[in-house]
Structure formats: structure tokens, C-alpha cells
């Protein structure tokens, strides 16, 4: 300890506590999240997930500990700066709209950054294209579908060019189609490499795609590691009240019936493994294979 180059981490928490009176919502949380990582935060209702991410940009102020964002230590003086590094997207996009059109809404954040008119127009165009909402720029937010609203909210946040994007159950109010659109946007942002993604979610399918899974329980980190490994642990799933991903349930049901394709957590991987499985069998059975 003490030798970590702090600028290397997007987020660094050291012994962070948060609580009111004698009840601690978060207890002694220490975390280091490197740049570009896609992190999911899981845990049962009331585990402290939303509290944790609200501490990052000072929406809530920690009671004790240290928080560094992109190497900047959080204090009254740095909070303004830190907020430019973190973009937040919440569950209900309606809570986040202020403008009369999607374009106004993106511009609102940019005006507060005191950018030139040209730069603002450039950014609106860039991020509208990236989130595929150019055709929606003149629409009133209330006329958009849930998925379109959430994409617009993300565009408005990204236009301010934060390095860290925090999503607090951003898909929980979306229908399944919109949820998939959002997941596509997250994959693209991750591939881009410029963003650190921190996502609170109850969706095991989303967790299976992330680089890292952090599990909170009773205000403490109880597990932290690769989702591919953590999602296999029944005890952990039970503790944070999750169900195994459908892909994994299927692998286990297949194994009981003598079909072993391993333990996979993503639907796509299972599809591929099953394709291999029956094509190999077919080749062996017909003697046309090697």
C-alpha cells in the first residue's frame, strides 16, 4: 500500500464509511477501479449500492475515508472538478430531462461548461450520432420511447465528456427491447476504451458481460472479481438474491442429461457451444468427420 500510482485509477476508495447516527450504510469500503474497466455492482435491496455511487461525485458526502477520482482527492475544493469527470444516469430518465427538446437538453449541460457555440454544436452532433438519436434531436422528451429517452439521457451526459460513466439501475424501468438497446450502447462505450463504466444492476445477463463484479452486502464488499467465476457461486447468488443466468441454468440442466458443454454464463457462448456439440456428433455419427 502507499505505493500505488493514484493517477492510474479512475476510482480509488480507501476505508470509506457513510452513515447517519450510529447506523452505517457503508462500512470500511476500499476499492480501486482502473481506467476503462466495466464494473457491475450487485447486492440485495438496501445493500448500499446507490449510496456508494452517490459518494463518488459528492451527491452524498462520506463520513470517513478517502475518495480519489482520476487522481483527484475529493474535498470541498475539488468537488466541482470531480463532477466533470463523472457522468450519472439514473433509473428514471424523466427525472433527468430539463430541456424542451432533446437537443436543448444536451445543450443545457454544455452551457454550464461555458463552451463556445461551435464546440457545443460539434459535441451535440457527435454524441447524437454515437447514440443514434440524430433523428430525435427536435423531439420533446415526453414523446420518446423509454429506450430512446435513456439513450438521449446518456448522450447528454457523454457530451460533457466525462471519463467515468455511472449507471444506477439505468435499465430497470425499460422494456426488454429498450434494455437490449442500452446494453448495446454500453458495449460500444466499453469497446471505445475511453470510459470507465460503473453500473448498478440486478441483471445477471449484464453482469456476465462486464469485466468485473463487485458484490455489496450490509454495506461491505463481500465479493470482487470476474463475473464468469462469481456467477458460478450459488452461495453468493443467494446472498445478493440473484438467480443464475439462464445460460448457466441451461448448462447445468444439460449436464444432468449427459450433455457437458461446461459452465457458461452468456447466451451467445451457449449457442455456439451447442452448435459445436451437435455438429461434432453429427460428423462422428455419419463418419464424415475426422
Amino acid at each position: 500500500m502507499g505505493t500505488i500510482d493514484k493517477s492510474k485509477h479512475a476510482v480509488l476508495l480507501e476505508h470509506v464509511y457513510y452513515g447517519q447516527g450510529c447506523t452505517n450504510v457503508l462500512k470500511d469500503v476500499s476499492l480501486a477501479i482502473p481506467h476503462g474497466q466495466w464494473v457491475c455492482i450487485a447486492g440485495r435491496n438496501g445493500a448500499g449500492k446507490s449510496t456508494l455511487i452517490r459518494l463518488l461525485n459528492g451527491l452524498l458526502l462520506m463520513s470517513r475515508g478517502r475518495i480519489l477520482i482520476d487522481g483527484l482527492e475529493q474535498s470541498g475544493r475539488t468537488l466541482g472538478d470531480i463532477r466533470r469527470h463523472i457522468g450519472m444516469v439514473f433509473a428514471n430518465p424523466d427525472d433527468q430531462f430539463v430541456g424542451l427538446t432533446v437537443e436543448d437538453d444536451i445543450a443545457f449541460g454544455l452551457e454550464n461548461l461555458c463552451l463556445s457555440r461551435e464546440e457545443m454544436q460539434h459535441r451535440i452532433q457527435t454524441y447524437a450520432e454515437r447514440l443514434d438519436i440524430v433523428h430525435l434531436l427536435n423531439r420533446h422528451p415526453a414523446t420518446l420511447s423509454g429506450g430512446q429517452k435513456q439513450r438521449s439521457a446518456i448522450a447528454a451526459v457523454l457530451a460533457m465528456e466525462p471519463s467515468i460513466l455511472v449507471l444506477d439501475e439505468a435499465a430497470s424501468m425499460l422494456d426488454e427491447k429498450a434494455k437490449n438497446e442500452l446494453l448495446d450502447s454500453m458495449r460500444a462505450m466499453h469497446a471505445d476504451g475511453r470510459y470507465t463504466l460503473i453500473s448498478i444492476t440486478h441483471d445477471v445477463e449484464e453482469m456476465a458481460e462486464a469485466d468485473r463484479l463487485i458484490v455489496l452486502d450490509g454495506g461491505m464488499v463481500t465479493a470482487d472479481g470476474s463475473p464468469r467465476e462469481l456467477l458460478l457461486r450459488e452461495d453468493l447468488l443467494q446472498r445478493c438474491r440473484l438467480k443464475a443466468p439462464f445460460a448457466l441454468q441451461l448448462c447445468r440442466e444439460l449436464k444432468e442429461r449427459g450433455i457437458d458443454i461446461g459452465e457458461l454464463v452468456r447466451e451467445k457462448e451457449v449457442q455456439e457451444a451447442l452448435w459445436l456439440y451437435h455438429s461434432k456428433r453429427y460428423l462422428t455419427a455419419t463418419g464424415t468427420g475426422g
Binding site: F246, L250, V270, Q271, L274, H278
Partner: peptide, 20 residues
């Protein structure tokens, strides 16, 4: 029409059936 997706099992069954 309802913004729903077929459940995972139905999607996977559909793909497998098509392959076979």
C-alpha cells in the same frame, strides 16, 4: 408490438431448431 423479447429459452430453442 409490446416491446417484449421472447424468453431466452424460446430464442435458443428457435436457433437450435433452425440449425437442425
Amino acid at each position: 408490438e409490446a416491446g417484449l423479447m421472447a424468453p431466452s429459452s424460446v430464442r435458443i430453442a428457435g436457433t437450435l431448431a433452425a440449425q437442425l
